[in-house]
Nucleic acid binder design. Structure first.
Lengths: 199, 199
DNA sequence: GCGAAGAACGACCGGTCGTGCTATATTCCA
DNA sequence: TGGAATATAGCACGACCGGTCGTTCTTCGC
């Protein structure tokens, strides 16, 4: 059973997450957010000790969502290349983001916090390191399965996947390029092809 | 000869550009900027009709700098692969950015404006399309020179270069990864290698 | 169903934001 | 060098910011 407070608190963070995708975590304003969830500013604020605490919860929720929508579903796929492909597929879907209006929060925050120290940045850094590691780990498994070359640099592989994703977001969201997804998929297909074990 | 007004106006935009690299164009505040150039807020404001006008000038200055530091120096290199390599080299240098504290302004603004319509966004979009085209054009010349495969998709090539650059910025500025530059150079070397005409 | 704990409210704080207006100081040209 | 043009300052504005307050209404355990 969820108490009333926990419930609205959940609502707040959910709505804040969606808002933050459009304006970032710094651009998020308590007044706007309160109006959005139909609370008074003070009523909303009472749920958090500070704005930074709220920001941290929002980022953590985003991380949970990302894991739930991108990472975990891929983990049920067969080990090796299929899993790597699933990760990329979900990653693209996450970035193009169904109902999500704004950008991928993580990519946006990368810019917002790359020179703004603090707890939010620390959590962001950790999440992004984890993400690189997740990709690298999947690639390493693909090596073990004999799908990928034994001498493949899995962290380099992760680097390039992330690059493909970021460029995709720019082409798709900012430049509104009709071939954005095709570009991304081509780049990934190519990357996988040259990561495979020579036959 | 430059009139006094033009001179301080220049100073303002210069300083604003450097500030914007740290806080973005929206995060830029007239008060801070005025204090920085030792003017009163109103004295500064008198030079521009609005904040948006200032933002546009700042972005235009950034574009001019980018052309001057990245594009133009590469154009003096020999047509073909050397020029492509020079573009990438200068691009990396621009992102890691000498004295620049913050991020590459264009990558940052990509996030800031990908869902914020207006003149600033329009100019940004134009500049980024130009950038993609600049890379693609250099690649096309490399095809003509017989350096690159005739069937190379030059826009795909540009897409991947941009991706490498963006991932580099994340690794370098946010994650502070010691091998960031190596990762970027490896990715590019690989991209060029598979773009070359088979011997 | 009563009383305590928790949730939400409205008013308000000191600050900062972008942007006017008016007046003074400085620059520039005839 | 004087007078017009320009550059800067001072001040005030309304809006909004994150955050605090005391108060009231609602939930919940006993």
């Amino acid at each position: 059973m969820m108490t009333k407070g926990e419930e609205t608190r959940r609502e707040i963070v959910d709505r804040a997450l969606s808002l933050a995708s459009e304006v970032g975590l710094e651009g998020l304003s308590l007044g706007n957010l309160a109006a959005d969830v139909k609370l008074s500013k003070s009523g909303l604020f009472a749920h958090f000790k500070s704005k930074e605490a709220l920001q941290l919860e929002v980022l953590q929720r985003a991380i949970d969502r990302f894991v739930g929508e991108v990472v975990r579903p891929a983990l049920v796929k067969p080990r090796g290349e299929p899993r790597v492909a699933a990760i990329f597929d979900r990653y693209l879907a996450w970035i193009s983001g169904h109902e999500r209006k704004g950008s991928c929060l993580f990519i946006a925050l990368t810019q917002e916090y790359d020179d703004r120290p603090g707890a939010v940045r620390d959590l962001l850094v950790k999440s992004q390191r984890d993400w690189h590691q997740t990709i690298a780990r999947a690639a390493r498994i693909a090596i073990e399965q004999g799908h990928f070359r034994a001498d493949l640099d899995v962290e380099q592989f992760a680097y390039e996947v992330v690059g493909i994703g970021m460029a995709f977001q720019q082409l798709y969201k900012l430049l509104d390029h009709p071939k954005a997804e095709q570009r991304a998929r081509t780049a990934f297909r190519d990357l996988v092809a040259r990561s495979r074990r020579p036959t």
